[in-house]
Simulated assay, not measured.
Amino acid sequence: MSEHGDVQGEFEFDHRWAEAAEHKEPSARARMLAARWKENPPGPVPFRGEVGPVTPRRSSWISTAVVLGCVAAVIVLLGYAQTHGLR
């Protein structure tokens, strides 16, 4: 039984040994991109993309007014229904 414990200690992964390796294999994604770019290299990409035309956005106060108007209409309808005995 003690022999089994000693053998298991031999097979533990040593992170220090792995980090000290001289050659590190690239990741699968890096290998895939390198193979793809060997056949079809990517074009130059600017640091910042070109800014297209800016479309005007609706003001947020319009949306707020519509929501508050709907809430007020519901309150008025509920009050009307309650005062006239409608269910």
Rank of each mutant, 00 (worst) to 15 (best):
F13A: 13
L33H: 01
E12W: 03
G9F: 00
V76N: 03
I62H: 07
H23M: 05
A35G: 05
V66A: 13
Q8P: 01
V76W: 13
L68I: 12
P44N: 13
A81L: 07
P53E: 15
L86A: 04
H23V: 13
V71N: 03
A73C: 05
G85L: 00
G49V: 04
S60K: 07
F47N: 13
A30T: 13
T83S: 14
V67L: 15
G43C: 02
G5T: 09
E39I: 04
G5L: 13
D14T: 02
A28C: 05
A73P: 02
P26C: 00
V51N: 05
H4Y: 03
G9D: 10
R36C: 09
C70L: 14
R31Q: 12
D6R: 15
G85C: 00
H23K: 09
V76R: 06
R29F: 00
G79R: 11
R48D: 05
Q82N: 09
H15P: 09
V74H: 02
V54L: 11
P44D: 07
V76K: 03
A30V: 08
E50N: 05
P44W: 09
V67D: 06
E19K: 10
G9K: 14
E25L: 14
D6S: 08
G79Q: 12
H23I: 09
E50G: 10
G9Y: 00
P46F: 01
F47V: 12
P56S: 11
R57P: 00
K24S: 03
V66D: 08
R29L: 01
H4I: 08
E3T: 08
R58E: 06
G52K: 11
P26F: 00
S63L: 10
G52Q: 04
Q82A: 15
D14Q: 14
V66F: 09
R87Q: 12
S2M: 05
P44V: 04
H84L: 06
L33D: 01
L77R: 11
H84V: 06
V71P: 02
G85I: 00
W37M: 01
S2P: 02
P46V: 02
V7W: 03
G43P: 08
D6Y: 01
R57L: 13
A21F: 00
I62V: 15
G69D: 04
C70I: 14
E12S: 13
A65M: 14
G5N: 12
H15E: 12
W37D: 13
H4T: 07
G69K: 05
Q8G: 02
N40C: 05
P46M: 04
E10V: 00
R58M: 06
W37C: 01
K38M: 08
G79V: 02
R31W: 03
L78T: 08
W61C: 03
V71L: 15
E19T: 09
G43R: 08
G43N: 08
P44H: 04
R31S: 07
P53T: 10
F13S: 07
C70H: 06
W61D: 12
F47P: 12
W37Y: 15
R16E: 14
A81M: 13
E22M: 07
F13H: 11
S60P: 03
R87P: 02
L78G: 12
T55G: 08
